[in-house]
């Protein structure tokens, strides 16, 4: 589901369809306040992120304060108010990956892309986040681009992986 984004004002314009979809999701959960987190999950899975305007709409539908919605959104790291990049890079920062050098990998990605965790590159191609543990400890350190898992990543691999995506033809295209 696409939403138009006015980068200058950081305002997004919700289309009629988008509004209808959010309302439908709220209805599906019976407008129950207790289902807020499930609703946010459902909405984020449709839009990729949770811009302010969507949070306002959800608050209105559930008849709760928008501050409460925002308080919940900012409490849980899974929810984001920034659109992810075309190729979201996530790095596992579980202990197994950490002791096998994940921090160096993370720093290398930050350096290569010149962004911090939780940010997206200005061209919208990459965003970077760290995960708690993807449970693929046997492959540590683990890096994911979208759904694609890269295991036993070495620092030197980072530049290669990124440049493949930059070129638009990753040698390991995303599954699905």
């Amino acid at each position: 589901m696409e939403i138009t984004r006015d980068l200058k004002n950081h305002k997004v314009q919700l289309s009629e369809n988008a509004i209808a979809l959010v309302k439908k999701i709220c209805r599906r959960f019976n407008y129950e306040e207790g289902e807020l987190i499930n609703i946010l999950h459902a909405v984020q899975s449709q839009f990729g992120y949770l811009p302010a305007e969507i949070q306002e709409l959800i608050a209105k539908e559930l008849d709760i304060s928008v501050a409460k919605v925002y308080g919940v959104v900012t409490f849980y790291s899974f929810f984001t108010m920034k659109p992810k990049g075309k190729y979201p890079i996530s790095l596992c920062m579980g202990t197994a990956c950490y002791v096998r050098g994940a921090e160096n990998i993370l720093n290398e990605i930050k350096r290569q892309l010149n962004i911090d965790e939780g940010e997206t590159t200005p061209d919208g191609l990459f965003s970077l986040s760290s995960l708690r543990c993807v449970g693929a400890c046997g492959l540590a350190p683990v890096l994911m681009v979208g759904e694609k898992v890269y295991g036993r990543v070495a620092q030197a691999d980072v530049r290669k992986i990124i440049s493949e995506y930059k070129a638009g033809c990753p040698t390991h295209p995303s599954k699905e």
Binding site: S65, V66, A67, K68, G71
Partner: peptide, 10 residues
């Protein structure tokens, strides 16, 4: 019940 303030972030 004004609901303007909430704890945010963590």
């Amino acid at each position: 019940t004004v609901g303007v303030l909430s704890a945010i972030n963590r």
